[in-house]
Structure formats: C-alpha cells, structure tokens
Design a protein around this nucleic acid. Structure first.
Lengths: 222, 222
DNA sequence: TGAACTATGGTCAGTATATGACCGTTGGTC
DNA sequence: GACCAACGGTCATATACTGACCATAGTTCA
C-alpha cells in the first residue's frame, strides 16, 4: 500500500461518511426538510466540504437512492437460478421482496412516495428519469419471470404479460403498504406473508392449472 | 461530537500512525539505520508531514521510548497495594517485571542497550537525561519497597538500600538477559522464573529471617 | 589526502483539502 | 409588496500535505 492509495481510501471514506449522514436524515424526513448544513453537521464537516464531494444536494439524494435501488435489484435478480420453474421464481421473488422491505421500511416508504408521483421534491428531469428507470427495473424482473414461464411452457403463451406483471407488483406493494405502517409490529410480518401467499398462489394456480399438470403438488408443499 | 473534535481526533490518529510505523522500525533496527523517509513510507505519508507532527527524528524516538517506559512504570507501580508485605511486593514486582518483558522483548533489549551506555545513538543531552530519569524511576520502585519494608519493621533498618536495590535490579536484568535471546523458546520462561525465584527468595530470606518471625511459611506457599 | 559521491535530516514553496462568511433566491408573513 | 428567515450554493481564506531541494556528514577512490 502506498501514499496515493491511502489518499484515495481516505477520500472514499469521507464520501461514505457524508452519504451515511445524509441517508439517515433523508429517510427520516424526506428531501426538502433536510438541509445541506444539517448533513454537514452530522458528518462533522463544513458545508463547503460537502460540495467538494457532491455537486448538489440533489446529487447526494440521487446517489443514495439509486445505489439503494441497485442493491435491491441485485438482490431481487437472484431469483433466476438453474432448474427453477417460473411459479417458484414468482414465489421466491415475493419472499425476497417482503424480506427486503421488512428490513428497510424507510426505503420502501420512499419508493412508494416516489411512485405515487408526489412531486413535492421537484427533482431535475434527469434524476426523475433515472429513478423511474431504476424502479422499473424491478418490475422488469417480474416481466422476465413471466417470459421465462411462457418460453418453458409453464405459463400459457397468450397471457397479458403487462397485466400480470402489474397485478403482482400491485399485490405486493398493496399488501406491504397496508400493513407496514399500521397495526401491531408483532403480527405484521405474518399478515403480510399470508396475504401475499394467498393472492400469489391463486394467481399462479389460475395460470398454471390449465397447462401445467406435473407440478407434483407444488402448492401443497408450501 | 462536533467539527473541532473530529479534527482533533484525526490529528491524534495520524500521530499514532506515525508512532506505530516508527516504533516497529526502531525496535527492529535501532535508531540510526531507520530513516525518516522509511517511517514516512511505512506510515503512507510524505516526509514533510512527519515534521508537522514531530520536530525531529529524535523526538519521535524519545516519545516512543518515554511513553513505553511510562506505561511500564505505571504497570510496575501496581505492586503497591494495601495489606501487602514488602517481601510479597518484591516477589510481585519480579513477576510483573518478567511478564512485561517476556511480552515485549524488544523494549527490554533497547533498555538494556541504552543502560549499557551504547552511545552509538548520539542523542541530545536532554533526551539522554530524560531516558536516564525514566529508567531510574523503575529502580526507584524497588527502593520504595525497601523503605516500606523498613518502615513496617519487615526489613532490618540498617540494610544498605542502594546495594539491595541494585542487587535485585541486577538479578532481574541479568537473568532475563541471559535467557531472553538464547536457548529454546519453550524452556525460556520457566528458566527465567525459577532462576529469579531462587535468587529473590534467598535474598529476602536473608533479610527477613532475622527480624520477621510470623511470616507463616510464606515461602512454603509459593 | 582531498575531491567527488552518496545518504540522510530537515526546510519550504507549491498543492490539495477543508472551512464558514457571504450571496442570491425563494417562500412565508403582515 | 416590503420585509424577513432559511436555504442551496460559492469562494476567499485557512489548514494540512507533499516532495524537490539544501546542508552536511560520512564514504569511496584516485
């Protein structure tokens, strides 16, 4: 390890410090109520220093959110594995989806707020597009599962992919939203999982019992 | 925690980085063979930066050695405890002394080299005096034990304190020196401890069996 | 022996990084 | 619509770091 390397590391560390301080506040209060001064204070830096690492408050927010969504997308993409059927993938997808947002409720809340087009944050067009693209990439995963299911003959070829995709997407977000910030903490996870399970199983059964006959009691195993 | 506090911490951290890099090299190679450039390299800093934290190479060495000796002195001073006899203190002292230098052989070697007046390091007079004062503080601990023993009536009041002090000091250093850098690692500690024990017990017995009669088989317990 | 060379402790002008007073804008108040 | 407060963003200044440079003290070799 040399001198240049050390400096690089220190810079990266400082960047992370800022992002960490900012993330906490953004996720607690939203975009506008958080000031650059408060991020600086939390990070134990001056305001000017923040602007040495990021060119605007918006860029900080963008990097946090886009990186969070990327991580999430990476995690969710792990549903694609050799030897898995499309139905199984959909169920795994929902499991991971629920797991993830149970562990990071604030991220979920923020994504929901964003998708509900609460444009009180007046982001630049670029950031808005990036965020839309990023959130869509999650929906694309569902779509890919559907296509895979059709290609493998597990799902009927004439289903409306977009409709199915939106239904599952809506089911997940709806159920999670319904329970995540209401009701008793203790019952929350169970309620979410059982509601999604019922909805998803019904959905898949509706698709598959016409064409797929050799699933060997897949749902009975659950 | 605020901004000033953070900067202070970072400065202190950098100081420690330098000292750590320097200590390793000084203890491996001695004073002269270690260059400021090599310390800087190890610490992943430029040479100039070293001089922002220390005014000379000698000061670095001094701070390391004096701080090491201070720590040692603090440790060794823990022999003074309520309800202990002077003989017990001397035995505890030797235990701690041996423990310490078994764990930090290089410090022992350096102190020995220094005390043997190997003045190949041409330190400034000030540093030399500081080092002498620091090393003497250890010897003073033995002297204090002697005085305590005399005050409490455990040791005869007419013993030559300086002579006794030097004898024990010499015994410890001699035995440790003899074994520390020779012979098999496995047998080393046992040999040192038994040699010191024999010497010290004999010494104390010679002092105490005249005056102290109620020690209740102190040595038999060992 | 002494000139040339080398290695090293220490310096300092130049560069990189960090700071916070300041500016223009905006949104709220009366 | 004049005032104000609060904010994002800027920039002159301050702080921290760097490495080419210097003086000197050994070392080599003609």
């Amino acid at each position: 390890m040399g001198l240049e390397e050390r400096k690089k590391k220190e810079k990266e560390q400082r960047r992370k410090t800022i992002l960490k301080a900012a993330r906490k506040q953004f996720f607690e209060k939203g975009f506008n109520p958080v000031t650059v001064a408060s991020i600086a204070r939390k990070a134990e830096l001056s305001k000017g220093t923040i602007y040495l690492y990021f060119k605007s408050k918006e860029e900080i927010y963008a990097q946090i959110l886009l990186s969070d969504i990327d991580k999430f997308h990476e995690r969710i993409s792990s549903v694609f594995q050799e030897g898995k059927g499309a139905s199984e993938m959909l169920l795994d997808f929902s499991d991971i989806y629920i797991d993830y947002f149970l562990a990071d409720r604030e991220l979920f809340r923020i994504l929901m707020v964003f998708m509900l087009r609460n444009d009180s944050m007046d982001f630049s067009e670029e950031l808005n597009n990036d965020l839309i693209r990023a959130t869509n990439s999650t929906i694309d995963v569902i779509e890919r599962i559907f296509r895979y299911g059709i290609d493998e003959g597990e799902f009927p070829p004439d289903i409306n992919i977009r409709q199915g995709r939106n239904a599952i997407w809506g089911l997940l977000n709806g159920v999670i939203s319904l329970h995540l910030f209401t009701g008793k903490e203790s019952a929350r996870e169970r309620k979410i999982r059982s509601a999604v399970k019922v909805g998803l199983e019904g959905f898949i059964k509706g698709l598959t019992n016409v064409y797929v006959t050799d699933k060997k009691g897949f749902f009975e195993q659950m």
